[in-house]
Design a protein around this nucleic acid. Structure first.
Lengths: 164, 164
DNA sequence: TACGATTTGTATGTATACTGTCAATATACC
DNA sequence: GGTATATTGACAGTATACATACAAATCGTA
C-alpha cells in the first residue's frame, strides 16, 4: 500500500513516552516550533497509515486542488495550497507519471501548463478521500469538540497573521 | 547569514491573503494536517529570518540536545528529539563539518558514536539561542496569553497520544 | 511600438524525512 | 560457550521544501 506504512512502529523515533523526563526536561519541549514539527511528522505518518492509494499528503492536496480548479497553472496551484514553485514541478511530475494529472500547454499563455485531472486521477482521489478524512480526525482525536474548534481557530489566526 | 533569509518575501508561495476566498473555499482549509504543514513552513521561515548563525531548526535542536547531554549516541539523540536514525546522520555530518560537533567512537560499545559539542559549537549555540527564542515567540505572536497556553497544552496532548 | 519589469516553468544545489537494507557489534537465552 | 536476536550507524532511494538562476514569454508603460 503506502510506502510509509510498514515502518510505522519503528522504535528509533518514538520515545517510550512523550512526557518522559529524559526528554521533557529539554527546553525543546517549550518551543512551539518543535511541537509543530513533531505534529507534522505525526500527521504524515497517520496519513500514510490510512491512505488506501499510494499518495502523499502533498500529492493529495495537489490532486484535490486541481480537481476543484481544472486548468490552473503550476504557479497558481502553488500559491493556492502553499507550495514553492520549484517544489510543485516534481510533485506534478510524479502525479503525471501515475497518469493522475495531465499537463497541457496553454494557447493563451505559452509559458503556462494547464493542469487537469484524469479519470484515473478522479478515481484515486475518490478512493483516498474517506481515508484522508479519517487521518485528519485521528490527528485531533485526543481533543474534545471545543478544543478542536479552538485549535483550528488558533491555527488560522497564526497563518493569517504570518501569510496574510 | 541564513540561507533562507533573503527570499522570505517571495511571492509564489504566499497567497495575498490566507483567508482569500479563492483558497479558503477549498476543503483543504478544514484539514488540521494542512494547517500543521503550513505552520511548519512558517516556523522554518521565521527561524531562518531570526537566526544569527547558519543553523537550521533541526541542527539547532540537535546541537542543543548534545550540549545538554554530552556523550549521547546518534540513535539516542534521534529518540530524544524525534528524528529518524537515518536523518540524524546527515544532520551530524553537517554539524561536524562546521566543527560544532565531534563524533568519538565509544570504547564500551564500538557501534556507538559518542557526540560532543565543541567550543565553537557552544559559541554558535549561545549566539543562536536568543534569536531562536525570538522566532518561537513570533510564531505564536498573534495569540494572547491564554491561547498560547492552550495551544501548547493541545499540542502536548496530541503528541502524547500519538507518540506516548 | 519598443523596452524594461514581471511571470512561468525548469534546473541545480542543499537540507530535511523516512523506507529498506547491510555489516558490525552487543545482548539474551539455551 | 554459542547462537538467535536486537541495536547501531551507514548507505541508497524517494519525496518534500526552498534559494537561486535561467530562458521563454507576457505585460506595462513610456
Amino acid at each position: 500500500m503506502s510506502r510509509l506504512k510498514t515502518g510505522a512502529q519503528r522504535a528509533s523515533h518514538e520515545t517510550p513516552d512523550y512526557a518522559d523526563t529524559a526528554a521533557s526536561d529539554l527546553p525543546l519541549h517549550r518551543m512551539p516550533g518543535h511541537h509543530i514539527r513533531r505534529l507534522q511528522q505525526v500527521a504524515v505518518r497517520l496519513f500514510a497509515e490510512e491512505a488506501k492509494v499510494d499518495l502523499t499528503p502533498v500529492q493529495y492536496a495537489a490532486l484535490f486542488a486541481v480537481a476543484q480548479r481544472p486548468g490552473v497553472g503550476q504557479a497558481q496551484l502553488a500559491a493556492l495550497i502553499g507550495y514553492d514553485r520549484a517544489t510543485i514541478g516534481g510533485v506534478i511530475d510524479r502525479l503525471e507519471q501515475k497518469k493522475w494529472l495531465a499537463r497541457v500547454a496553454s494557447v493563451e499563455d505559452r509559458r503556462v501548463n494547464l493542469l487537469t485531472i484524469t479519470d484515473a486521477g478522479s478515481d484515486a482521489l475518490l478512493q483516498a478521500t474517506a481515508s484522508v478524512r479519517r487521518a485528519q480526525e485521528r490527528i485531533i482525536e485526543p481533543l474534545d469538540e471545543e478544543e478542536r474548534a479552538a485549535f483550528e481557530r488558533m491555527c488560522l489566526k497564526m497563518l493569517a497573521h504570518h501569510l496574510g
